[in-house]
Amino acid sequence: MKIVKGIFYFIWIAAIVVLLIFFIASPQSFTAENIADFLSRYNNQLMFIYIIVSLVRGLFLIPSTPFVLAGIPLFPDQPFFVFIVSLVGVAAGATMVYYMSDLLGFSKKLEEKYPSKIEKWHQRLNSPKASLIVIAWSFFPLVPTDIICYVAGIVKMPYRFLIAGVMIGEIVLIYLYVYGGMALV
């Protein structure tokens, strides 16, 4: 099991490093327009590619916003499709990040290095107000939702409260992105 974890960890880190290098070398490639352009090259498989990319982006800690915004010009007559795919992608990303915090062994390292901070977050995310914290965090567009999912995985926040908070916060945000964006297009 340790070897599999090590291989998975190496592949995951290598993929993030490659994406980060590509982002630094070519940040214009990660705009909503360029993502839409890339996806439109594969017009016959476009819906399938959009769904797959929306589902796996969470593995690489890539924010969902550019993909939601890219879906607007890609599927201008299907806002509900973009909305649903984006929500499912956010749920998949949140779930992957939540469970990866333990799978990759980061939680033990952080607990050893920052025990007081981990305890503080443990108290916050295992309190009756925990879902409200997650809802607010998920709704605020300037902070990555993946961070709260990662911390929730480390402190063992009940998954059902995490995913409910993420979905409530993201439903509003994605709705505004999709239908507001469609109105602008």
Rank of each mutant, 00 (worst) to 15 (best):
L125V: 04
K5Q: 14
P144F: 04
V56I: 15
L104N: 10
I154N: 08
G58C: 08
S40Y: 07
V134C: 02
V166Q: 06
F67A: 05
F23Q: 07
V56E: 02
M182Y: 10
V185D: 01
F80L: 15
V82C: 12
R57A: 05
W12S: 12
L132P: 01
G58L: 04
S138K: 02
L173I: 01
V155M: 03
Y159N: 03
S138T: 00
A152R: 06
L59W: 09
S107Y: 05
S64Y: 12
S138R: 02
I133V: 12
A70R: 12
L39P: 01
E111A: 10
R160H: 10
S64Q: 11
F30Y: 15
I52A: 13
G105A: 06
P141I: 04
M167L: 15
K108W: 02
F30L: 07
Q45W: 09
P115T: 08
E111M: 13
E170S: 15
L132H: 11
L74M: 12
L142I: 14
L59D: 03
S116L: 14
I174Q: 07
D77V: 07
V143W: 04
I147K: 00
I7E: 09
L39K: 07
Y9I: 00
Y114A: 10
N34F: 00
C149S: 14
D146W: 12
V178N: 07
L103G: 08
G105S: 11
K113R: 15
A91V: 13
S116F: 06
Q78L: 14
I3A: 11
R41D: 05
L125M: 07
Q45M: 14
V155I: 00
N34T: 08
V68S: 08
V90H: 03
L142Y: 14
A130V: 04
G6T: 06
L176V: 13
S131Q: 09
I174H: 03
E119W: 00
I16P: 06
S101C: 06
L184R: 02
I154F: 03
Y98A: 10
Y179I: 00
V178Q: 05
Q45Y: 14
K156H: 13
A15V: 10
C149W: 07
L132C: 02
N43R: 11
L59E: 07
I118K: 10
V143P: 03
Q45A: 13
V90C: 12
N43F: 00
